[in-house]
């Protein structure tokens, strides 16, 4: 089974740029543009890796450590997430650890933003922390809801398996509300519209881009890749924890194939939803973002409370 676990982690890691490309392509289609091919992110990353770096003279070791830590934390998360099979390669701490791994990524990126010493970096870091104060509790509550709902403890694989075997019985207010909250969290965490615009280079609207502004060459490639992987991990978590039906619990070849097809289909649906949101909404004003995040927070809180009172 270890082979399957390794393969699913590798699959997630390899798919990350493709997912990002698919979202962009779908978005371009909705906006009536031809758009770049779905493989464009791979080409971009390859291009960045081949380029030299421009590094400021005032930067210390932290500047170079940040991309490494960011990428490492996301790679570990990819190994912790069930995708086509409920067993995972790194079941070393369950979903609480998952949330703290996201914190680790964010903490490193915020420090990277401050390290640049430019005003943009500080601005991006400051805004990122403002959002994360509201995102993280929603994330924590959302997956805590799953732990209580499934009654299977806090290990990701167990939750996925428990909800999958519960079948339709699992669908209730708690799961639906938590999934909605998680979807908002997904958009906010991955710097998508309406929270942030991943393609912007207008300094007043930047959040995520501002933090990585000083990076170039392979370090920029690592930062970009980590954020693609983060999005893919989120999509995989939404698919395999909140809508886990069809996921392989046994690891038999047939079920794995079915599960793989279903998992990819789920991801495509999520990508379509993301592209749709990005096409019909505009980026919200920075100080309106907390209102939307509070909605996500409230949804997940109600989801968890509903488990106790309903």
């Amino acid at each position: 089974m270890i082979v399957v676990e390794v393969l699913q982690a590798v699959l997630l890691i390899a798919l990350a740029p493709l997912m990002s490309g698919i979202v962009s392509k779908l978005k371009a289609g909705m906006q009536n543009r031809p758009g770049a091919g779905v493989l464009q992110p791979y080409r971009d990353l390859y291009k960045l890796c081949r380029k030299g770096r421009a590094v400021s003279g005032s930067c210390s070791w932290i500047f170079h450590a940040v991309p490494v830590v960011c990428m490492a934390s996301m790679l570990i998360l990819a190994a912790m997430t069930p995708f086509v099979y409920t067993g995972v390669l790194a079941p070393y701490g369950g979903l609480v650890t998952v949330v703290y791994m996201f914190t680790m990524y964010r903490f490193a990126m915020v420090l990277g933003g401050l390290e640049g010493g430019s005003t943009f970096g500080g601005m991006g870091s400051s805004r990122e922390m403002m959002m994360s104060v509201l995102i993280e509790p929603a994330l924590l509550l959302g997956i805590a809801t799953l732990a209580v709902l499934s009654g299977a403890g806090t290990d990701m694989g167990d939750i996925s398996e428990a909800i999958a075997t519960m079948g339709v019985a699992a669908v209730g207010p708690a799961l639906i509300l938590a999934a909605c909250s998680f979807m908002i969290t997904l958009l906010a965490e991955n710097a998508r519209i309406p929270f942030d615009n991943p393609t912007t280079h207008l300094e007043l609207t930047m959040v995520h881009e501002a933090m990585i502004l000083e990076y170039s060459g392979k370090e920029l490639a690592m930062m970009e890749y980590s954020s693609m992987l983060r999005m893919t991990v989120f999509m995989a978590m939404l698919g395999s924890l909140f809508l886990p039906w069809g996921i392989s619990c046994t690891g038999e070849p047939v079920s794995l194939v079915v599960s793989l097809v279903l998992a990819l289909a789920k991801m495509l649906v999520i990508a379509f939803a993301m592209a749709l949101v990005e096409s019909v909404l505009c980026k919200s004003r920075l100080f309106k973002v907390p209102n939307l995040l509070t909605v996500s927070f409230a949804l997940s809180l109600i989801a968890m409370i509903s488990l106790y009172i309903l």
């Binding site: 903490f107 870091s125 922390m129 509550l141």
Partner: peptide, 28 residues
């Protein structure tokens, strides 16, 4: 659930605070 939320909010605010402490002492 309220306490879980409290832990989450609290954890992130202090993380902000420590990122700020470290960032302004050692970085930039």
């Amino acid at each position: 659930p309220l306490l879980v939320a409290m832990m989450g909010v609290c954890g992130m605010i202090v993380a902000t605070s420590y990122a700020r402490l470290f960032g302004f002492m050692f970085l930039g």
